[in-house]
Design a protein around this nucleic acid. Structure first.
Lengths: 208, 208
DNA sequence: ATGGAATTGGACGGATTAGTCCAGCTGTCG
DNA sequence: CGACAGCTGGACTAATCCGTCCAATTCCAT
C-alpha cells in the first residue's frame, strides 16, 4: 500500500521514526509551497533541522523522499475527505463539503492549488512509482465521492441508472480543474464555479 | 499583450528572429515533456542546436525564456481552440470538439496533460508575470467556450437566464481537471468522463 | 563598400545541488 | 553490562546548472 521503501527489515527506533517524520513533514510543507522541482534537499535539511546524512539514512534519495511525501499528503487528504464525505448522504451534505473546500481555498486566494493535484502534474510524467501512488489516492478519493452518490441513489434521490462512477470522476475532475484555474487566477471563484457546475448536474438528475 | 521582453528597441534581423524561434520551440517541446523544473538551459541549447550566448542574447534568463514559451504555447492552443470553437453553435459541434480533444489525448495515453495546464501549475506560484499571462490565456479560452454557449443561447437552445460565464468556466475546469486525472492514470478515460459530465449538464439545461 | 550593430560560438566561472564518507553517539537486546 | 545495529553530525566531492565573457562573423544602413 505504501510506496515508502523502508530498507529491508531494518529496525527502526522511536527516535529514528521521529526524525524520519520530521523530514517528511518538512519536505511536504516545502513542496506544497515551492513545488517539487524548486525544493532542494538542502532546503529540507534546513527546514527540518536534521543533517544530510540523516536524510540519506532514511531515504535513498530525492525520489524516495518525494514518494514518502506523496504518501503523507495522500494520507492527510484522504483522512480529511473521509471525515467530510464518509457519512454524507444528501445534496445538502455535498454542498457543505463544497463550502468547506471553497472557504479553505479562499483563505489563500487560490494559491498552491490542491496539494495532491499539484504533486500529480509534477510527478506523473517523471516517476512511474509516484504516479501509481497518486493514481491510487485519486481513486480512493473518487470512491469516497462515489459512496456519497451511491447513498443518494439508495435513498431514491438519484435514479438507479445514474452512472455513479462517472459522476464521481466528473466531480473530482471539476474540483481539480477548478483548483488549477483558481491557482492561476489567484482567486477562488473559478474553483467554486467548476464544483458548482458538477453539483448542479448531480442535482439536475434528482427525480423531482 | 505579449509577455516577451524584446530588449529595448533593438533591431532584430530575420536570422535573429529565426534563431529566437528555434530556441523557443525547442524549449516548449522540452518543457511539455519534462516540465519546467526538469528542463535545463543546457538541454535547450542541445535540443535547439544554438549556442549558450545566443540564448542569453535573446533572453535575459530562464524566467524570460519560460515566459516566451508560455506565449508560444498559448498562441498555439488559442489558435487551435479558435479554429475548433469559433463557429460552433450546436451541441453536436461541442461534442465534436470534445471528441477531437479526447482522441488527441488518447494517442499519448493521457501523458503530459494539457500543455497550458501543466505550465500553469508549475509557474503560477513562482512567477507572477507568467501567472498573469496564463490567466489571460485561460480567460481567452473561456471566452471561446462562452461564445459557443452564447450562440446556443441566442439560437434558443439554452434558456436566457443561463449563466454563460459560469458554465464556460465549469466546462474549462472540467477539461483541465480531466487532463490531470488522465495524466495520473495514463488513461484518457477520466478526462472523457469529466468533459462528458460538463457537456451533459449543458444539455440538461436545453429546453425540451 | 564600409562602419557599426546584430549575431554567433564556445570556453569559462561561481554557485548550487545531489550524493558520499566516516567518526562518534545512542538505543536495544541478550 | 557489553556488543552490535541503528542513528547522528557535518565536512567533503563530483556533477550540474545558470550566467558571463570575448573574439569572430554576419547583416544592415548609408
Amino acid at each position: 500500500m505504501s510506496t515508502t521503501e523502508s530498507p529491508g527489515g531494518r529496525r527502526l527506533t522511536a527516535r529514528g521514526a521521529l526524525t524520519r517524520a520530521r523530514i517528511v513533514t518538512a519536505a511536504a510543507d516545502l513542496i506544497y509551497i515551492q513545488g517539487v522541482g524548486a525544493s532542494t534537499l538542502d532546503d529540507v535539511v534546513a527546514a527540518s533541522g536534521v543533517s544530510k546524512s540523516q536524510l540519506y539514512h532514511h531515504f535513498s534519495g530525492k525520489e524516495a523522499l518525494v514518494r514518502a511525501v506523496i504518501d503523507l499528503v495522500g494520507e492527510r487528504v484522504i483522512a480529511r475527505e473521509r471525515a467530510a464525505l464518509g457519512h454524507v448522504s444528501t445534496i445538502t451534505g455535498l454542498r457543505r463539503w463544497r463550502d468547506a473546500l471553497v472557504q479553505s481555498n479562499a483563505l489563500r486566494h487560490g494559491a498552491y492549488g490542491c496539494a495532491l493535484g499539484s504533486l500529480a502534474t509534477e510527478v506523473s510524467d517523471h516517476d512511474d512509482v509516484g504516479r501509481l501512488a497518486l493514481f491510487r489516492l485519486f481513486d480512493e478519493w473518487r470512491d469516497l465521492l462515489a459512496g456519497v452518490l451511491r447513498r443518494l441513489q439508495e435513498g431514491g434521490a438519484l435514479p438507479p441508472d445514474a452512472s455513479i462512477d462517472q459522476l464521481a470522476t466528473g466531480l473530482l475532475g471539476a474540483l481539480q480543474g477548478g483548483y488549477m484555474l483558481a491557482q492561476t487566477a489567484r482567486d477562488v471563484t473559478p474553483m467554486a464555479a467548476s464544483v458548482d457546475m458538477a453539483i448542479a448536474h448531480i442535482e439536475s438528475l434528482i427525480a423531482k
